[in-house]
């Protein structure tokens, strides 16, 4: 349990970055760094956070930070970890640095997944953090493997015959857990205590750990910037983004929900789902509800919870 009063007031992430007003990913980064136990370094994939925090000559980072490419953060982090180890063994450097590889959902679910898989398989002591805003927002809202069904993006528009994105959101944590790593978790910036706790656990783990955090994007979700945190909570409460941990393969729910919040409540606050509010797509909403329940029940089952 995180007590805000006890969290460090030291800001490793400075203001003056150029992420949008009400940016969820920005909150996710700041919270993640509050979990630091000591020296920390970030390897950042190309994406909103990278682009907006390091526009030369201004950097928002007060810790060692490197950006390489869109899809190679996990590999760059692997190399960095190897360098630290090798130089330490040879007496050329000293001191533990916790390495966090950070990617958005595009850099994680899609183009970067191979390098992440390699990093997990090789067993590097790195935390992989995916801030998920559910599309390629940096390039102007194109769909990704993390975009939920029904969401309109510029490459999965709500058309006359196709109502937004087809296909489900990838089970990224399931993929990570299947590598047999010690710790993987989903989180929401809406539930900061749970999220920061999970980041702390991930950093503590000796070996690879993964945290997947939902971080709404007012621009891409076409939502009110004021409601970023509210939406991050609702994503969890609707069952669309269940939060849980996988400790050495054992699933554990982080929040037990009695009844799921109707997804319409969540949809109606976001422009990307507005088309689904029309009567002709009623059936689509029903299908999304079925999918959501099915996935939610699957996680409950994995966590050994009663299914009601």
């Amino acid at each position: 349990m995180v007590v805000l009063k006890n969290l460090s007031t030291e800001e490793l992430y400075a203001p003056g970055h150029r992420l949008c007003a009400g940016c969820g990913p920005s909150i996710s980064i700041r919270m993640a760094l509050k979990a630091a136990r000591g020296p920390i370094a970030v390897v950042n994939a190309t994406g909103c956070v990278e682009v907006s925090t390091t526009i030369f000559p201004y950097t928002a980072w007060r810790i060692p930070w490197v950006h390489a490419l869109f899809e190679n953060q996990a590999a760059v982090a692997s190399g960095l970890e190897a360098a630290y180890q090798s130089l330490e063994e040879k007496g050329k450097r000293k001191g533990k640095v916790d390495i966090i590889a950070v990617g958005g959902d595009g850099g994680t679910f899609d183009i970067g997944i191979q390098a992440i898989s390699g990093m997990l398989e090789r067993g590097h002591d790195i935390v992989y953090l995916c801030y998920d805003n559910e599309a390629y927002m940096n390039t102007g809202i194109q769909r990704s493997g993390a975009t939920p069904r029904g969401a309109a993006t510029t490459t999965s528009p709500a058309g006359k015959v196709i109502p937004g994105k087809r296909g489900k959101k990838k089970d990224f944590i399931g993929i990570c857990a299947a590598h047999g790593i010690s710790y993987a978790a989903t989180a929401s910036i809406g539930f900061f205590s749970d999220y920061i706790d999970k980041m702390k656990k991930a950093i503590e783990v000796d070996g690879p750990a993964v945290v997947h955090v939902i971080a709404p994007c007012p621009l891409g979700w076409r939502s009110n910037p004021t409601e970023t945190v509210k939406l991050a909570k609702m994503a969890v409460l609707t069952g669309l983004f269940p939060i849980y941990e996988v400790n050495d393969g054992i699933y554990k729910m982080s929040m037990k929900l009695g009844r799921l919040l109707p997804i319409e409540e969540y949809f109606k606050l976001q422009g990307r789902f507005q088309h689904l509010m029309k009567p002709e797509w009623k059936n689509e909403v029903e299908e999304i509800k079925k999918d959501t329940e099915k996935h939610y029940k699957k996680i409950l089952r994995l966590a050994g919870e009663k299914i009601t």
Binding site: A74, A75, S78, G79, A82, A83, K92, R93, Q114
Partner: peptide
């Protein structure tokens, strides 16, 4: 030497970049 048997050449060069900026 720390030897990383990576999963592709893309990652091989990426890991080399990471290691090189780490001072190796």
């Amino acid at each position: 030497t720390k030897y990383l048997p990576v999963e592709s050449e893309h990652s091989a060069m990426s890991a080399c970049v990471g290691a090189s900026i780490g001072g190796a």
